[in-house]
Write a protein that binds this DNA or RNA. Structure first.
Lengths: 239, 239
DNA sequence: CAAGAAAATTTTTGATCAAGTTTAGGGCAT
DNA sequence: ATGCCCTAAACTTGATCAAAAATTTTCTTG
């Protein structure tokens, strides 16, 4: 071809801003966020073609995202080719409690000495915003900020394997958290974030681990309660 | 609710013979097995088109299988569109030790009371075959049977969430086990399977958990040792 | 004649493949 | 050693085929 002095068409676009993110990655992140924060309710079916139309993406990327989320437990094969957001039962919640209680304090412990003062400030800032969200009854903001607090803390630990496991756990009970808020409101959602921040400032490993353990157990117990009362009242899976 | 809901859905004969397994599932299982048992070495690149040609499958199913395994930690994005079998470093092994030590004894404990005499017989049979494999230096058989022993035990626990997590852990250190065997042979690979079986027969939860804990720690320490000696001797990792 | 259920048809959705487009990495020339 | 170009591989789309759900039709029975 000629093009001796021909400028290449895509020469400048390769800056940092461009960041060619593959479509399957975008779809994955979008779906993941919507599941994690309860925008897709438990039991809700997720169809490939529906996502293709909604997101305007091709079929293969959507399939890849669904496979990925299925293997993370965020979606569930419903027997015959159907995929839904899972509805955890009591036994599942029990397992999640065991796993979170075993792993998250460990992550918190490892984050203790690695947390810089700025990190702790950020965590405190998240918690402040979280309190504000609770005060005005903003469920979505509460869910996002609560996740952000834990995620930030665990990221500080710099333990990628443990982090991946725990993030997978959050995907499993995330949809239920919104149901809990719908039942109990945001007022009765105590946490141990201030204790966590104080223990981090004191660099007290055990105290950080204990605060996170209490936070985790407290939160999961509420999920279990609401789940059991839901199972009793009626299986209303309305749209 | 429409109370009719007559079970007019006649069960298709698909139970026994038909069993139409999707291609993406077959590819997933094939790849998973090859990674878990070290047929794909750590660091080895995995290309989509290579698999398409090797397996004779289409591109979409292969992509789905790779996404799934990537999200399970069995494969790894190598930055720019490249996928390889991960090469765990010491920090990664440390994390795996923490996670396995936290979760597998818990699974074993829960399996104790659910294990039927037949289940225990099966476990003992696997261990006998395992000893035979060690005696004749059959690395592949050793790897398969060792996995089978643990997998069988954890399946008995009937805790799907914990099981999924632990199987994910196995995928991460599986490729390294073959490297360990290549270094140390099969003779010096002690386990605590007989102690486990005896404790199961006695229905002694704590003893079962302790045996599995020792087995896990013992095995992972060997992985760590070989990994460190490998890191010292040959930096064969591409820059 | 009406009502309900079984069967057949339609329609929606999932699974797979093949072709076109884009991008990263290696080879080659200067 | 540096920069351009070319190849090979990843990414994406659209089309096609098969399977399952929804709907309609028809047949049987009270």
């Amino acid at each position: 071809m000629s093009g001796v002095s021909a400028p290449r068409q895509v020469d400048v676009y390769r800056d940092e801003i461009s960041q060619r993110i593959p479509v399957h990655q975008q779809v994955y992140e979008d779906l993941r966020s919507r599941i994690l924060f309860g925008e897709l309710a438990p039991g809700q079916p997720v169809t490939i073609q529906g996502l293709v139309e909604t997101l305007g993406a091709g079929m293969t990327p959507v399939r890849e995202a669904i496979r990925r989320l299925t293997s993370e437990g965020a979606l569930e094969f419903q027997g015959n080719r159907r995929v839904t957001v899972p509805t955890p039962n009591t036994a599942c919640i029990e397992e999640l409690i065991v796993a979170r209680r075993a792993l998250e304090p460990e992550l918190a412990r490892r984050a203790t000495h690695k947390a810089s003062p700025q990190d702790i400030d950020i965590l405190e800032g998240i918690d402040t915003a979280l309190d504000a969200a609770i005060a005005r009854g903003d469920v979505s903001a509460y869910l996002h900020l609560n996740y952000e607090f834990h995620s930030k803390l665990y990221t500080i630990a710099s333990t990628p394997v443990l982090l991946a496991i725990v993030e997978g756990l959050w995907l499993r009970f995330g949809p239920s958290l919104r149901v809990v808020c719908g039942r109990m409101g945001t007022q009765n959602l105590p946490d141990k974030h201030k204790e966590t921040v104080a223990a981090l400032r004191a660099e007290d490993e055990e105290a950080v681990a204990a605060a996170i353990r209490d936070d985790v157990v407290q939160g999961m117990e509420q999920v279990r309660e609401v789940l059991e009362s839901n199972a009793l009242t009626g299986e209303m899976i309305d749209t």
